[in-house]
């Protein structure tokens, strides 16, 4: 039985294989890009705006307000990366309402890639904000003894990000698949609805955790004065 969409391969040539995860991810990317292009075709700043522009404004303002509440100053700078993270994970969960759609985030490859993006982006934004030396010095806060633990902590929270999203999405699809063989129609529908809810919560959590990690790396540090 397939626990991830990775195992369904469409085409293979040597070590390159085109499995369902890749196909669905690229279709989602295409769909999101085309939808974004169409929705932002004619943006207006006054007068009556189209409903798509209003919907996009709602989404962007909500994400920006969440980023500011977490403590990220200049939230607009991180909006493209974090907002896209949230939208991708949320849409890949909501898409399980479409029959035949297996969420790409139910494959460890996708979630590991997303967690890898967060892992790379935290030092990137930290160095961009504070400079290389001051960012590296944060690893030795509060004392230099904490240096190995801070480094291990970076890796372990990236791993936890990947595992959390993968575990939630994979278990949702697996439970529905198993229940279909036992009691068709009632319980699979209920479990799919529950899977939608937990998927949206997990999308929000992935996004908020990434924002918290970036905020921790870019928060302004007070200068030490002799009198404290």
């Amino acid at each position: 039985m397939n626990i991830t969409p990775d195992q369904h391969v469409f085409w293979r040539h040597g070590w390159v294989n085109l499995n369902e995860t890749i196909v669905i991810t690229w279709l989602m990317m295409l769909g999101m890009a085309i939808a974004a292009k169409l929705m932002t075709g004619r943006l207006r700043t006054e007068g009556s705006v189209s409903r798509w522009q209003a919907a996009l404004e709602i989404i962007v303002t909500m994400i920006t307000s969440q980023l500011e509440a977490v403590g990220l100053n200049h939230a607009r700078k991180y909006l493209p990366f974090l907002g896209t993270l949230f939208l991708f994970v949320a849409l890949s969960c909501l898409g399980s309402a479409i029959p035949g759609f297996h969420p790409p985030t139910s494959s460890l490859s996708t979630t590991a890639a997303l967690a890898g993006c967060v892992f790379v982006s935290v030092p990137l934004f930290g160095i961009q904000d504070q400079g290389l030396w001051r960012y590296l010095k944060t690893y030795s806060e509060p004392t230099i003894i904490m240096l190995p633990f801070n480094i291990i902590g970076e890796f372990s929270r990236t791993l936890a990000l990947a595992m959390r999203l993968f575990g939630n999405m994979m278990s949702g699809t697996l439970i529905v698949a198993i229940l279909i063989t036992i009691t068709p129609l009632l319980f699979p529908v209920v479990m799919t609805a529950l899977g939608l809810l937990t998927g949206m919560v997990q999308a929000y959590i992935f996004f908020i955790l990434a924002a918290v990690y970036i905020a921790a790396a870019t928060r302004p540090r007070t200068r030490d004065t002799p009198n404290g």
Binding site: A160, G167, V201, I205, L209
Partner: peptide, 18 residues
């Protein structure tokens, strides 16, 4: 918000076992 983040952290232990 903090509650949800904390719950996600605790949940990840159960997900590892799963």
């Amino acid at each position: 918000r903090t509650l949800f983040v904390g719950l996600a952290m605790i949940e990840s232990l159960a997900i590892d076992c799963f």
